[in-house]
Simulated assay, not measured.
Amino acid sequence: MFRRKHTHDHGEIDSSQQDAKVKELKLALGTLSGRSSKLCTDACLRRYLEARNWNVDKAKKMIEETLKWRATYKPEEIRWHEVAHEGETGKVSRANFRDRDGRTVLIMRPGKQNTTSAEGNIRHLVYLLENAILNLPEGQEQMSWLIDFTGFSVSTSLSVRTARDIINILQNHYPERLAVAFLYNPPRIFQAFWKVAVRYFLDPKTSQKVKFVYPNNEDSVELMRSFFDVENLPKEFGGNATLEYDHEEFSRLMAEDDLKAAKVWGFGDKPCNLANGPVGDNVALKSLPNGYLKAEVAPEPF
């Protein structure tokens, strides 16, 4: 989570033991090919081992389940034009600034929920998780989340089942990808949703990464400043920057990243309806409302 010590059933594990565990897991998985080999880097194996307290057998089982899921769900093949309608209001977007450790930041605004499709919401989030990972700097494995509860209500919240499905995907197939999630100024009505639909399904390690922060709480303010430069942090989160979402601009950026993702995963020649416009022929940009995240200050060095 916050770079705490790695432990397993027999106590602390040092870096040489970690390296040995990675090699052991690699041998246990056997020869991998195609996208599986691209996914299962040493860094990836470390994340799965850490998620399973450095137990090789448990980490192996976890990775194999992820490989099965990815073979069916194919998250790396989701393209922006397929999920763009879910993002029209900017309910989830990648920020154009990073935290103090250089991590990609996802900004979530549940009060801007615009659809009732469980699968649509899940695919949209999975797409943005993959995109956030694609944009991580070299050597960085984790991302940060900023969640703004402005406008949140029961009518805009996800169902318990959808929340559970999202949590299962995050915990089982993206282990140790989340560094910290800031729930900024959540209303009382969210407390019940948190207890019933969210916290119950979180494992202890993930739960510790979730931070409730409030603008009038001095400790909360200091916590936010320890992770972010206030000149880049939007006002909605206690900073000085202006947060705007321009859906047309964001769509253009995502279309560019789709081409980059295709090359990374080795299917650069696969047609993705991107050749004739920012989001393909299936989407008319002029019909999309405004919205990308723009912090109107100089971005932090990446």
Results as ranks from 00 to 15, higher is better:
Trp194Tyr: 12
Leu136Gln: 11
Phe152Leu: 13
Phe97Arg: 05
Met62Trp: 07
Asn290Pro: 06
Ala298Asp: 08
Ala118Met: 08
Arg177Cys: 15
Thr116Lys: 12
Leu288Thr: 14
Pro301Gly: 03
Thr150Asp: 14
Asp258Gly: 01
Gly90Trp: 10
Glu176Asp: 12
Asp42Phe: 06
Asp57His: 07
Thr242Asp: 07
Glu138Asp: 10
His6Arg: 07
Asp281Trp: 10
Gly266Arg: 06
Asp42Pro: 04
Glu222Ile: 09
Glu231Cys: 08
Gln171Ala: 05
Asn121Cys: 07
Leu223His: 01
Leu293Asp: 06
Lys209Cys: 14
Val126Tyr: 08
Gly34Met: 03
Val279Lys: 05
Asp101Ser: 14
Glu130Gly: 06
Ala298Gln: 12
Asn135Trp: 04
Lys61Pro: 08
Val180Thr: 14
Tyr292Arg: 12
His124Trp: 02
Ala95Glu: 03
Cys44Ile: 10
Asn96Cys: 05
Ala95Phe: 00
Asn96Lys: 12
Glu231Asn: 14
Arg52Trp: 10
Ser16Lys: 13
Lys270Asn: 08
Phe190Asp: 00
Pro186Val: 01
Glu300Asn: 12
Asp42His: 01
Ala28Asp: 00
Glu249Asp: 09
Leu39Cys: 02
Asn131Ser: 10
Ser287Thr: 14
Thr89Lys: 05
Lys91Glu: 02
Tyr73Glu: 13
Gln171Ser: 07
Asn217Gly: 00
Gly102Val: 15
Phe152Pro: 10
His6Gln: 11
His81Gly: 02
Ala255Tyr: 12
Cys44Lys: 02
Asp219Gln: 14
Thr104Glu: 15
Ser36Arg: 12
Pro234Trp: 02
Arg103Leu: 08
Thr242Glu: 07
Met143Val: 15
Tyr174Trp: 06
Leu178Pro: 01
Val279Ile: 11
Phe228Val: 06
Lys263Cys: 11
Phe228Glu: 00
Asp281Pro: 05
Glu76Val: 00
Pro271Trp: 13
Leu259Met: 13
Asp148Arg: 00
Gly277Trp: 09
Ile13Thr: 03
Asp101His: 11
Asn217Ile: 05
Ala295Val: 01
Arg109Pro: 09
Glu222Cys: 05
Met143Asp: 02
Ala179Pro: 02
Ala95Ile: 00
Lys235Thr: 08
Val279His: 06
Pro215Cys: 01
Val196Cys: 15
Ala163Leu: 13
Asn121Val: 01
Gln191Gly: 08
Phe149Arg: 02
Ile147Phe: 01
Pro110Glu: 00
Thr66Ala: 14
Asn240Cys: 09
Arg3Ala: 11
Leu27Pro: 00
Arg52Ile: 11
Leu25Phe: 04
Leu170Glu: 07
Asn282Arg: 14
Ala84Gly: 08
Leu25Cys: 03
Arg161Ala: 10
Lys60His: 10
Arg225Cys: 07
Ala59Ser: 06
Glu248Trp: 11
Val221Glu: 02
Leu233Lys: 04
Trp69Val: 06
Arg52Ser: 08
Arg79Cys: 13
Leu67Gly: 01
Lys260Gln: 14
Arg47Gln: 06
Glu244Ile: 15
Val210Gly: 05
Thr242Ser: 11
Met224Trp: 01
Ser144Tyr: 06
Leu223Ala: 01
Ala262Trp: 09
Thr31Trp: 04
Arg3Gly: 12
Arg252Pro: 07
Ile63Arg: 05
Leu134His: 14
Lys58Arg: 14
Leu285Gly: 11
Phe302Leu: 10
Asn172Ile: 09
